[in-house]
Amino acid sequence: MNVRVLLFGPYADAAGADALTLAFPERDEVTAGEVLAAIRTEYPPMSGMLSAAILAVNERRARPEQPVRESDECVIIGLVGGG
């Protein structure tokens, strides 16, 4: 399965893209924690800024153990700074 993760703000700047696609071969389901871990491994420029990051899945904050499926909309939140 592939998981697409939307990026905003400093995450998009670090990745040089507004979305990432992560491949999880031979999996039908992964966890939010696995998605963040895969980003750390595959996109080293982002690894330093992921300590405060949380994955939002379908517009809700996801706990690390929460399942993620291919059709889910994922976004990295954290390091926000409105106002």
Binding site: D13, V80, G81, G82, G83
Partner: peptide, 14 residues
């Protein structure tokens, strides 16, 4: 409100 907004709400500025 402001402290919690800056910590939690997905709004970014460049």
């Amino acid at each position: 409100f402001i402290d919690r907004m800056k910590q939690d709400v997905p709004i970014w500025k460049r």
